[in-house]
Design a protein around this nucleic acid. Structure first.
Lengths: 235, 235
DNA sequence: TAATAAAGTTAGGTAGACCTAACAAAAAAT
DNA sequence: ATTTTTTGTTAGGTCTACCTAACTTTATTA
């Protein structure tokens, strides 16, 4: 079994290496920044994880996860996202309240618990933020998604996830009716600065390009699969 | 907030001081034994808890909890028992599988989580072992209960709790149909060695006195309250 | 390409929670 | 009431996960 700290590093590496749109190279500094520790600390831990064959990297080189390390990290992500789903669906937590608690719950060690919880929630494929939940083997479904900032004028998308998890962002999104599973139409976009007019629940809101770059949407007709273009796709 | 270790000590002290039938005096050695640590370790922690005004004791003297310490310990017990209830009722864990996982879950820090869970479970008063669940203020209902070994021949009792939580005991109890909430009739008892014949679900089982001393039962007609004798009590 | 900046590493140090071994006080037994 | 046993305490050490400060390597840029 892994310590809580080890699990945090493995999860962080999975997120930085596998769950990012571009730039899947990770360094000590970036990892440290992500985990709110100092580079020296991250470096210590990387050596420890290398000893345990969970990561592979050479001095001054880039970091990658071994198969075993990736599996372990995925498992933490799986638990985190299942607990988030539980909190929202069963205990009526709101979208922006779950993260902190899930950070603790993800470290509970019990295979039976995770799998029972999965069944209890009816094996959800996506969590309340719209992120994919890895299955027992660490596999995830990858919806064909793009940033709201890249959706053409006049087209619509269904919100599947957000990149920013800060309270200020989540509350703002919530206020203008932007939530996971909801539809957004791009009514207009200013070429000068990317200011974008969104139509949400029949109301228009003008938001910044920055805001749009934090929201992932999928084509509402063909949510899954990479062959989206074959259908009469919204994008 | 308290560390996980601190919480464990506070919980242990609550159990040893308040949740025991007799001998509510606790010493360093006993506490250490209970927590599977060495006396020196327990002593270190006691000094730390005294610093924080959670326990009060003098060198070589007996240990007691301050009001604050008792509240904190009760809170851990509350969480432990709520999670056990959740595991059994919602995730179909069995009686003897819950303890280990609840030991981890009890340390999750979120008032909202505990109270939501409490509501989700419909504010249970007793956990799957039949132990009382403290409420938000740390209060518990005390059922008028006695040991099965003290129930007279011919009388019946409803099982409310067990003292032994070892797997061997729990599995044995389960095998002969003894479970929380179930009825047991004392059909006979050998005065020589206390061998007792129990009638459970219309079957008779002969068990040892030791076994009976681990089971708490309440009068089935007047479960709560100390004024049991007023009614036509089964005992 | 040499100077500067950024990224990564090492050495040595702290706090928490545990340990062993030696010792002191209190309780029990002779 | 003295010895023995039990119980409790102290001192000093380990391991984990963090830290700072100093240093080295790699990358950037002038």
């Amino acid at each position: 079994m892994f310590s809580q700290a080890e699990e945090n590093y493995l999860k962080a590496l999975v997120q930085l290496i596998h769950f990012r749109d571009q730039g899947n190279e990770v360094g000590t500094n970036e990892l440290a920044l992500y985990l709110n520790v100092k580079p020296a600390t991250a470096n210590d831990m990387l050596k420890k994880l290398r000893e345990k064959s969970l990561v592979s990297y050479v001095k001054y080189g880039k970091i990658s996860l071994t198969t075993e390390g990736q599996k372990a990290g995925m498992d933490v992500v799986r638990k985190h996202r299942l607990w988030e789903t539980f909190l929202v669906e069963k205990l009526d937590f709101t979208w922006d309240e779950v993260h902190e608690v899930a950070e603790q719950l993800e470290h509970i060690k019990s295979k039976k618990l995770v799998n029972s919880l999965d069944d209890f929630l009816q094996n959800p494929k996506f969590d309340p933020h719209g992120d994919a939940i890895p299955d027992r083997e660490g596999r995830i479904l990858i919806p064909y998604q793009r940033l709201l900032s890249e959706v053409s004028i006049g087209k619509s998308g269904k919100v599947v996830s957000v990149k920013d998890n800060s309270n200020s962002f989540l509350q703002y999104a919530d206020k203008i009716g932007v939530r996971i599973g909801g539809m957004i139409e791009v009514a207009g976009r200013e070429s000068y600065d990317g200011q974008t007019t969104l139509r949400v629940e029949n109301k228009d809101h003008t938001v910044s390009d920055k805001f749009c770059m934090n929201i992932h949407v999928v084509c509402p007709t063909c949510k899954l699969g990479k062959d989206c273009s074959k259908n009469d796709c919204s994008f």
